[in-house]
């Protein structure tokens, strides 16, 4: 039962991702991406990581995707953008990147075959994660906090309106 749940979620995640990345309209793509993220959250839950699943929904599907939505709304991409995107998805453009990606995938699968194993099915509680996080990984937490700080400052800086010289004012 649980196994079939896993495979269903996996198929949903994969197909939603593919659909998201092939849409011409950014808003539609975003909806598919959220579906994909929710499916991955289900996978996390099944893999015994409920805390990670919750965070996936909260931060990925919630916060980050909402940021995307904001930006798309602000930019208000029109029909012309959609048209050019559709042209860009012509099969001719797919061939080389497609071959390369397929090769990479095969390499990864070949590597994975070396270590066949089952997932244990033992849940890892948020408490253990917290202990680990503030125990041996405390330095990584500090680094992550600095990274987020830098992201904050950078986003604030980039969000300002610059006096653009060569392009008209906006």
């Amino acid at each position: 039962m649980m196994e079939s749940l896993f495979y269903i979620a996996a198929v949903v995640a994969l197909s939603a991702t593919i659909l998201a990345l092939t849409r011409a309209n950014a808003a539609h793509a975003l909806i598919y991406l959220i579906v994909s993220l929710l499916a991955v959250a289900v996978l996390f839950f099944l893999l015994g990581a409920p805390f990670a699943a919750a965070l996936e929904i909260l931060i990925y599907a919630g916060a980050i995707m909402v940021l995307f939505v904001f930006v798309i709304m602000m930019l208000n991409l029109g029909e012309a953008g959609e048209e050019s995107e559709r042209k860009g998805l012509h099969p001719r453009n797919w061939i080389i990147p497609g071959i390369m990606t397929a090769l990479l995938f095969m390499e990864l699968v070949y590597a994975l075959e070396q270590v066949p194993a089952l997932t244990s099915g033992v849940a890892v509680s948020p408490k253990e994660v917290g202990i680990m996080l503030f125990g041996p990984y405390v330095l990584a937490v500090e680094l992550a906090s600095m990274l987020l700080m830098a992201g904050l400052v950078g986003a604030y800086h980039l969000g300002r309106r610059f006096n653009v010289r060569n392009v008209g004012s906006n």
């Binding site: 080389i96 990147p97 390369m100 090769l103 990479l104 390499e107 990864l108 590597a111």
Partner: peptide, 11 residues
């Protein structure tokens, strides 16, 4: 694309 190519080779 070139980065992917390099990645491919590295792996």
């Amino acid at each position: 694309t070139t980065m992917v190519f390099g990645l491919l080779l590295l792996v």
